[in-house]
Simulated assay, not measured.
Amino acid sequence: MNSAQRGAGSARERLLDAASRLFYADGMVATGIDTITAEAGVAKMSLYNNFSSKQELMLAYIEARHQEWLGLYRARVQHAASPAEKVLAVFDAYVDHAEAAYEHGFRGCGLLNAAAELPVGSPGRDAVRQHKECVESILVEHLRAMTSEDVATDTAEHLSFLLEGAMSRAGLEGRSDRLLHARRIASTLLGAL
């Protein structure tokens, strides 16, 4: 994104965009308010006019990442014809996330990276947990059309572990290969249901 594009939008949008880039690249704790406001091209007071605290900005970032992933998933699932294809659309959304153009390279799941920086019981960690539960519930919903409730629940948990492990490795390696492999494993598992 060039500086003209970064300057577009409301101060809130620019702050959230800047925070999103910086939090993902450098971490939330390491990224200071001054760095965010400079990147956004706004005065420091603009941050506090739009967010009551850095914590509120971090929560807005986590929510934006959740909505971003849901958008990737919805774009994929609309082309899925069968329940198995809908399950695989979840994997495809993770692949799309990994293959997005990141300014400083792909570093894995932005939400898990954020959660790793936050203390247990913090609102941000809870928001990340809710996102992961949402992904798993999407899997359960599609799997119910293929098998019993118990098998759907167990399989969704298994696929969630597969996704998260693959995402962790993909983040370490900076590319989507592990996620593509996880998708192939998931396809094989679905074929056995």
Rank of each mutant, 00 (worst) to 15 (best):
M1R: 06
M1F: 01
S3A: 15
G9I: 12
R12P: 05
E13T: 07
E13G: 00
L15I: 11
L16F: 01
L16K: 02
A18C: 05
S20E: 13
S20V: 03
R21Q: 13
L22M: 09
L22P: 02
Y24E: 05
G27Q: 13
V29F: 01
A30K: 15
A30E: 15
D34R: 14
I36P: 04
T37A: 03
A38F: 04
G41F: 03
G41M: 05
V42S: 01
V42I: 00
K44R: 15
K44Y: 03
K44E: 11
K44Q: 13
M45H: 02
S46I: 04
S46F: 06
S46L: 03
Y48M: 07
Y48I: 02
N49F: 06
S52Y: 00
S53A: 07
K54E: 01
Q55D: 14
E56T: 11
L57V: 02
L57M: 06
M58A: 12
M58I: 06
M58H: 00
L59M: 07
Y61V: 01
I62Q: 00
I62F: 00
E63P: 00
H66G: 00
Q67C: 00
G71Y: 08
L72M: 13
R76E: 15
R76F: 01
R76S: 09
V77F: 12
H79W: 06
A81W: 09
A84P: 00
A84W: 04
E85D: 15
E85W: 07
K86L: 02
V87M: 11
V87C: 15
V87W: 08
A89V: 09
A89E: 07
V90T: 11
F91W: 04
F91Y: 12
F91V: 02
A93R: 02
Y94E: 14
V95D: 03
H97C: 08
A98E: 10
H104S: 03
R107E: 04
G110E: 12
G110D: 11
L111R: 12
L111Y: 10
N113L: 15
N113I: 14
A115Y: 03
E117Q: 15
E117R: 14
L118A: 11
V120R: 05
G121N: 08
S122W: 10
P123D: 10
P123E: 08
G124R: 09
R125T: 08
V128I: 14
R129Y: 06
Q130R: 14
Q130I: 04
Q130L: 13
K132N: 06
C134T: 14
C134Q: 11
V135W: 10
V135Y: 06
E136M: 13
L139P: 08
H142L: 02
L143R: 11
R144E: 13
A145E: 15
T147D: 13
T147A: 15
E149F: 05
D150N: 05
V151T: 14
V151K: 15
V151C: 11
A152H: 05
T153D: 03
D154A: 11
T155P: 00
T155A: 14
L159F: 10
S160I: 04
F161Y: 12
L162S: 05
L163Q: 13
E164K: 02
A166V: 08
R169M: 13
R169E: 11
L172C: 04
R175V: 06
D177V: 15
D177Y: 13
R178H: 12
L179E: 10
L179G: 09
H181R: 03
I185F: 10
I185W: 02
I185C: 06
S187Q: 14
S187F: 00
T188I: 10
T188W: 03
L189P: 00
G191S: 12
G191W: 02
A192Y: 04
L193Q: 08
